[in-house]
Amino acid sequence: MKLFNPHDPRHLLTSALLVLAFLIPFVIGSNLYYLTILILMLIFIIYASAWNFLTFSGQGSLGHAAFFGLGGYAASLMAVKLGLPPLVTLLFGGCFAALIGVLIGLTCVRLREWFLAMVTFGFAVIIQTLIVSQLAPVTGGWDGFPVPKLVPPSFPGYLMIEYYLVLLIAIVIILIFRYLLQSRIGLALAAIRENEVEARAAGINPVPFKLFAFGVSAFVTGIAGSLEIFHFGYITPEIFGIDLSFWPIIYSITGGLGTLAGPIVGTIVVTLLWDGLNSLGLTYARFIIIGVLLVLIIIFLPRGLVSLPDEIKKRLKKRRS
């Protein structure tokens, strides 16, 4: 496996994107607004990639906000109660989310897709209820609690440092996903996704692989959740909201399900579109446009925006012949 091949246009594009990501604060200026948008965008790229990783195993989730929030709560409680630096507790947040993810996965691996979607959705509702009722003495209930920032604001240019930290984390995570998918695990996951019965016949036991996918996805989602909270500096149970479960789905589908680049492209395009429509003063129409885009892409471009160049090439070829 070669990390960089100058003759592969996809590699060139990726490297161009990377260079852009590193230079962008210098190009557009390191002001608060741009950095806020960029950091949130990166966090959602991580989140959407984690959600998308689950679909590689043929599973899906409608309640990933559960892991997003659990990661956030675990990491911030750890940071507040033990006074550990956020960068350390981040990992703890991920691990906690992964643990719960595997437990949920245990019930889910035997379920059909629709059931799985329901269980995950319901799980997010249950967790939020728990956090604000029975667990309120620890979690602060609806009031939430303040959390230290990823980089203390007393540092000069702390937001810039935060941006590069999140960028680095995002790159590492995507490289790990890339490695996993090209390894034998990735092949097994693909086999299970395409046809579980045949995979079984070929001697692959789907259960540990599906659990693994669930655990990894929950782990990375938990990290994304912790990052968001350490960025905001305050945690409230709104982190389990339904909209937070749906955004990674929208990003991944728009970009391209089951591709590594899909969630990245999807997050960038949809966020820019969203903020753009916002500054045009569109309110409800914004949601309608996103909804229509989603429906059109599912029907006409099932492999998402990343497949657009191929589709255009195909069309041109057809016209020529």
Partner: peptide
């Protein structure tokens, strides 16, 4: 397998906000 769930998400956004509009 999950396409109908995803397309429903789109429909939810469309219907809710059309009515709100």
């Amino acid at each position: 397998k999950l396409n109908e769930i995803f397309i429903s998400l789109g429909l939810i956004y469309i219907f809710q906000n059309l009515v709100a509009l």
